[in-house]
Nucleic acid binder design. Structure first.
Length: 498
RNA sequence: GCCACUUUAGCUCAGCGGUAGAGCAACGGUUUUGUAAACCGUCGGUCGUUGGUUCAAUUCCGACAAGUGGCUCCA
């Protein structure tokens, strides 16, 4: 301790205060001696090929009320080739950045005139989104969900009842206050989540145990005031749409419903081939004031979640302090192109809101009972899901969700009528085909089709018109030669659904 | 919100104490073309905003805004 006093290192001294009575380790490198739990490399000589990556401010001991230290990030490899590979990998990752590809492929935009963190879905992005919604909606129908639509604002008192307002006022846009024509003051909140609205749907009529489970789904747009420094492309925004649903069930049904909800989430990740980590998000018992509900409720809910995880054979880890204030949850976490982790899907158990909103059902004992609520969103947010999807595919969307699926490219004006006829035929069959009838060289048309990452280009020249064929070029593969139109349609039919 | 950096044409980017330049795109022509970008011409910018220093600021300094990388937060 004396050593660090002489050095005037207040930070290490503070750490030492906390370590009183414990053994500590010091590492030495030349004239530099560091207090660290370890492990350090024995000597900087082991760092053969270093590169400094970035510099950033970081709060001392992770506390935003304390001073900011400058943190320098760097990496070192034992071999030069490994460093070069690493740099190359990073460059490749940057090419996948959804903000870059989102612009190039005209999927979305963010306009400062509209507002930061408020993404606009351009026609191409909207197409992808609608296809994702359609995919999920089909599953919801199979799984007994009912869709609802609720307003974008709600009375502030509803959020006082739910407890969201006291907990998250900082993370919401400030209330809309006004006095109506009778002189009564009202306060509304731009909705930061859909839950309380759905609870109102549930309690709009009495329920029998025979009705349960009731599964209410909505692609619900919500607005949250994220800190300005947190905004990032489509990953972290102030306005987004959750593929939300709330399942109201009896306690006996809880586990089966959790399994169903997790199964749906896994279907989503499997469909898109995404690698996902499952986190069981539990409360931090040392911080009980951050959570609603009593110990017995939390212990039970966490136990149930873990049992389901075990029974389903999920490969999971536990995140202490990651729970919602009303209950523990399963969170499904994926990485973006540069390795940052984002939560996409979530499945949450909630015993608190049924109490707060006095939700009821009549059991077979003719007595009133509280249902349990499962909150779940397999995509999480459509915006964030798209950001991951773009980076996952590097913009090369599979056929079924590609905004444009087929480019039809006549070589000269003579082939335009044939090309128009083919385009119409494809469009009539429900394919998203685009005719490029400009007076450009076919090389140019192909280049642009490839840059837009259109899965197929159908080149039509004199030969194809004469033989009633098309020359097929597959994105990322190349020229596949001439095929009959029928054969092409067969290929497309095979790719139509997922 | 905090720390650092960045902000020049629709896009990607040069440049600089003496009021700006390229490629692509757009537009007008010419070209009718066989698997990744034909040719010629035209248009296009109060150099993020706002103060200051200076004879003179897009350039230097400050503030603000937005973006980027982190931190904190994330129902």
């Amino acid at each position: 301790m004396k050593y660090f006093q002489e050095k005037g290192d207040q930070y290490k001294l503070e750490l030492l205060e906390g370590f009183k009575g414990q053994s500590i380790t010091l590492y030495k490198q030349g004239a530099f001696t560091d207090l660290c739990r370890g492990t350090h490399v024995p000597s900087t000589g082991f760092l053969k090929f270093p590169k400094l990556l970035s510099i950033a401010g970081a709060y001392w001991r992770g506390d935003s009320n304390r001073q900011v230290l400058t943190r320098i990030y760097g990496i070192a490899f034992p071999k030069k080739q490994m460093l070069e590979d690493f740099i190359k990998m990073r460059e490749e990752a940057e090419k996948r950045d959804h903000r870059k590809l989102g612009k190039e492929l005209e999927l979305f935009m963010i306009s400062q005139t509209i507002g930061g963190g408020l993404p606009v879905w351009l026609p191409n992005g909207t197409l992808v989104r609608r296809l994702l919604e359609e995919f999920l909606r089909n599953e919801l129908i199979k799984r007994g969900y009912q869709e609802v639509i609720t307003p974008h604002i709600g009375n502030l008192n509803m959020y006082r009842t739910s407890g969201h307002y006291p907990y998250y006022a900082d993370g919401m846009f400030p209330p809309i206050k006004f006095t109506d024509e009778t002189g009564r003051e009202e306060e509304y909140l731009l909705k930061p989540m859909n839950c309380p609205h759905h609870h109102q749907v549930y309690s709009s009529k009495p329920h029998s145990y025979r009705d349960l489970p009731i599964r209410l789904a909505e692609f619900g747009s919500v607005y949250r005031y994220e800190q300005s420094g947190e905004l990032s492309g489509l990953s972290r925004v102030r306005g987004f749409t959750q593929d939300d649903a709330h399942i109201y069930c009896t306690h006996e049904q809880l586990k089966a419903e959790l399994v169903n909800a997790i199964d749906l989430t896994q279907l989503v990740f499997k469909t898109f081939g995404m690698e996902v980590k499952t986190r069981l998000s539990f409360r931090d018992p040392a911080n009980k004031e951050k959570y609603a509900g009593d110990d017995a409720m939390w212990d039970q809910a966490e136990r149930e979640i873990q049992e389901v995880a075990e029974e389903m054979g999920l490969d999971y880890f536990i995140g202490i302090g990651e729970a919602a204030f009303y209950g523990p949850k399963f969170d499904f976490i994926v990485r973006d192109a540069i390795g940052r982790k984002w939560q996409l899907g979530t499945v949450q158990v909630d015993y608190v809101m049924p109490e707060r909103f006095e939700l009821e059902y009549v059991g077979n004992d003719n007595a009133k009972h509280r249902p349990v609520i499962i909150h779940r969103a397999p995509f999480g947010s459509m915006e964030r899901f798209l950001s991951i999807l773009i980076e996952h595919y590097a913009g090369n969307f599979p056929f079924w969700i590609a905004p444009v699926q087929v480019s039809v490219l006549p070589i000269t004006d003579d082939q335009i009528p044939y090309a128009q006829e083919l385009t119409k035929r494809l469009t009539d069959l429900g394919y998203r085909a685009k005719l490029d009838d400009r007076a450009e060289k076919v090389n140019r048309k192909i280049a642009e089709s490839e840059q837009k990452k259109v899965p197929f280009a159908l080149v039509i020249g004199k030969k194809e018109v004469e033989s009633g064929q098309v020359a097929v070029r597959e994105h990322g593969v190349g020229d596949k030669g001439a095929m009959s139109v029928e054969a092409v349609l067969e290929v497309f039919a095979g790719l139509k659904n997922a």
